[in-house]
C-alpha cells in the first residue's frame, strides 16, 4: 500500500517539475514534501482536495453544457440536430411521467436478464468443462477457440435468418454475448489456479469433488466474476443493438424511433439512459464481487 503511494508520489514529483502542459500540480499531496514544488502554499490550505477534484472534473462537462446552451440559443446549428438542454430534460420528464420510459427500460432489462442468465450458465459450464478436463480441452478447445473468434455482431444476420425477428432471436443473441466472456474467463480462471494450491489439496488427499469445491472454484472465482461482469456489459450493449433493428419496444427501439422521427431529444435521453443503466448494473455486480471476494484484498496486498 505505502509502496504504491510512494511510487505515484515519485512520478508526481517528477512530472510536477516536467509537465508544463498544464498549470502546476496541486501540491496538496502530503507525500511530495521531499521535492520542492513551486506552487504557492496558499493553495495547500484554502480548498480541500475532494472539492478541488470535483471542481476540476466538472469543469469540462460544465463548459460543454454552456456551449451547448449557447449554440442552441443563437441557433448556430438547425434545432433538428441540436435541441437545447432544457428540452432534453423536459422530454425526459415527459417520458418518465407517461411511464413510457419505464416500460421500455423494463422490457430491455428483462430481455437482458434472461439472455444473460442463459449465456452465463452455458459459458460457465463450457468453460469449466474445458478447464477441468484435459481431454475436453484437447478435443473441444480448438473448436471453441475458433468459435469465440467470430465477431459477435456478425451473428446478427445469421440468427435473424434462422430465428426470425421475434423474442427468441434477441434472447439467443444476448446469451451469445454473455457466453463469450464467461467461457473464456471461467476457462482461464480454472487453468490459472496455481499448482501450489492444487498440491495443498493433494497433500490432504482431497477427492475430486472436494478439490473442486475447496480449492479450484474458489481460486477461480475472481476470474469468473470478471467473466460475469463483462458478460453483462456485452449483453447490455447487444440488447440495444438488437432492439435497434428488431423490436417494437425497449430502449433500443425507443432510440430508433427517435432517430427516424428526428426527435433528437428522445435519442439523447436514450443515450444517457442506456449509459446510466449499464453503469448501475456493473456497479451492483462490483459491490457483490467485493462482498464475496473480501479475502482477495488481503491476499494480494
Amino acid at each position: 500500500m505505502r509502496r504504491q503511494i510512494m511510487e505515484s508520489a515519485g512520478i508526481q514529483r517528477l512530472f510536477a517539475a516536467v509537465t508544463t502542459l498544464l498549470p502546476a500540480q496541486p501540491a496538496a499531496e502530503a507525500i511530495s514534501t521531499s521535492f520542492k514544488l513551486q506552487t504557492p502554499s496558499i493553495s495547500r490550505v484554502a480548498i480541500p482536495q475532494v472539492v478541488k477534484t470535483a471542481l476540476l472534473g466538472g469543469l469540462i462537462p460544465l463548459l460543454l453544457l454552456v456551449a451547448w446552451e449557447a449554440v442552441t440559443r443563437i441557433e448556430l446549428v438547425p434545432s433538428q440536430l441540436l435541441v437545447p438542454p432544457r428540452q432534453v430534460l423536459a422530454t425526459f420528464l415527459d417520458l418518465l411521467n407517461s411511464g413510457e420510459l419505464q416500460g421500455h427500460l423494463k422490457i430491455s432489462i428483462l430481455r437482458v436478464l434472461l439472455g444473460f442468465s442463459l449465456g452465463t450458465s452455458a459459458g460457465f459450464l463450457v468453460g469449466a468443462i474445458l478447464g477441468l478436463s484435459k481431454r475436453a480441452e484437447k478435443y473441444g478447445g480448438p473448436f471453441f477457440r475458433v468459435l469465440l473468434q467470430i465477431p459477435i455482431l456478425g451473428w446478427m444476420p445469421f440468427l435473424l435468418l434462422i430465428l426470425g425477428f421475434g423474442e427468441l432471436f434477441k434472447i439467443v443473441f444476448i446469451s451469445l454475448g454473455a457466453f463469450y466472456p464467461m467461457t473464456l474467463n471461467t476457462f482461464e480462471g480454472i487453468k490459472g489456479v496455481s499448482n501450489e494450491y492444487r498440491e495443498v489439496g493433494r497433500v490432504f488427499e482431497f477427492g475430486r469433488l472436494k478439490l473442486l469445491r475447496k480449492i479450484i472454484l474458489p481460486a477461480a472465482v475472481p476470474s469468473i466474476f470478471t467473466g460475469i461482469r463483462l458478460g453483462l456489459g456485452t449483453a447490455w450493449m447487444l440488447i440495444v443493438g438488437a432492439e435497434l433493428v428488431a423490436a417494437t419496444e425497449g430502449v433500443g427501439y425507443m432510440m430508433t424511433m427517435g432517430r427516424q422521427l428526428f426527435q433528437m431529444d428522445v435519442v439523447m435521453v436514450g443515450v444517457v439512459l442506456v449509459g446510466a443503466t449499464g453503469y448501475l448494473m456493473n456497479h451492483i455486480l462490483k459491490i457483490a464481487e467485493q462482498r464475496l471476494l473480501h479475502w482477495r484484498n488481503t491476499m494480494h496486498a
Partner: peptide, 8 residues
C-alpha cells in the same frame, strides 16, 4: 454508454 447506443 454501450457502443451501439451511440449509433442513433
Amino acid at each position: 454508454v454501450p457502443l451501439l447506443g451511440w449509433m442513433p
